[in-house]
Computed example of a mutant assay.
Amino acid sequence: MVEQAVFRPLIDGVSSRTNYVPVDLSKSNPNISAELVQDPERCATFLEEYCQERAALVAYGGYMENRDLYTQNGLFQRGETRSLHLGVDFWCAADNHILAPFSGRIHSFANNTVSGDYGPTLILEHRTEWSETPFEGFSLYGHLAEESLANWIVGQEVKAGEVIAKLGEAHENGGYAPHLHFQLILEMQDEKGDYPGVCAPSDQRRFVANCPDPLPFLGLSAP
């Protein structure tokens, strides 16, 4: 059951809903260009100013957004272009730490170093028989700092609210403005340390069935 009223912050020290502001980075937003979102420095500056203008600390959004962000990267151009975003991004400075929203265990982790990929990635598994949790399945944390993967062991327990990672800079996070890619996954389908975070429009139904919208589980409203 989704507990929509319970707010589960992902960014350490940013514990109020009012500090989180929705942002639309899709192709349909006339104020967002492909050139802007594909330039880490320009994108980071835009998002920092966007938050400041709204008295917020974190900009978030992106579930099922159709984005231009991936159109210039060969990683997303094999066959039909993958442009539909399957997780929610939380945009803030790279010195921020990430909290586990639900208790669980370390499933896997990897540094996905191809340009445009997740960079350092951590995946947790959540089961009600281990601990009370509103979500059963897996949560993925992408675009982390390399140091985030140093001390974890597969199977290690993680408590809700525990610091689990730190956001990475562009040089280590796959080449993006600093942000967390947070994604929920019902079945990992034998993947470890990785899972597609963007799909082609023709695959939308299949991936949506396995990757539910994270926002209701976090207690945040959709943009």
Rank of each mutant, 00 (worst) to 15 (best):
M1W: 12
A5E: 12
F7K: 06
R8I: 05
P9K: 06
L10Q: 01
G13I: 11
G13A: 13
V14G: 09
R17W: 03
V21K: 00
V23L: 01
D24C: 04
D24H: 04
L25F: 15
P30W: 02
N31K: 13
I32C: 05
A34S: 11
A34H: 02
Q38E: 08
D39V: 00
D39C: 06
P40G: 06
P40W: 08
F46K: 02
F46I: 00
L47E: 12
L47G: 06
E49G: 09
Q52Y: 12
R54A: 11
R54T: 08
A55E: 13
A55G: 12
A56L: 12
L57C: 00
V58Q: 13
A59R: 00
A59P: 10
A59I: 00
Y63A: 12
Y63V: 11
M64E: 02
E65Q: 12
N66K: 13
N66L: 04
R67L: 07
R67V: 01
D68M: 09
L69V: 05
N73A: 05
G74Q: 06
G74C: 00
G74W: 01
L75E: 06
Q77N: 10
T81F: 08
R82S: 12
R82M: 10
L86D: 03
F90D: 07
W91R: 01
C92E: 09
C92G: 07
D95F: 12
D95Y: 10
N96H: 10
A100S: 13
A100K: 00
F102D: 11
F102N: 08
F109Y: 15
A110R: 06
A110T: 03
S115L: 09
Y118C: 01
Y118G: 01
P120C: 07
T121I: 02
T128A: 15
W130L: 14
W130Y: 14
W130H: 15
S131L: 08
E132A: 14
E132C: 06
E132H: 09
T133R: 02
E136Q: 13
Y141V: 02
Y141L: 10
Y141M: 09
A145Y: 07
E147Y: 09
N151H: 13
N151C: 10
N151G: 13
V154T: 14
G155M: 03
G155V: 07
K159D: 08
A160M: 04
A160R: 12
K166N: 00
K166Y: 05
E169N: 12
A170T: 07
G175W: 04
Y176R: 07
Y176A: 01
H179K: 15
H179Y: 04
L180W: 03
H181G: 15
H181T: 08
F182E: 06
L184Y: 12
L184V: 05
I185R: 03
L186N: 07
Q189Y: 07
D190Q: 11
D190R: 09
E191H: 13
E191Y: 14
E191R: 02
P196T: 06
P196I: 05
P201Y: 04
P201I: 03
P201N: 02
S202A: 08
R206E: 13
F207S: 03
V208W: 07
V208Y: 07
A209C: 02
C211I: 09
P214D: 11
P214L: 09
G219V: 04
L220C: 04
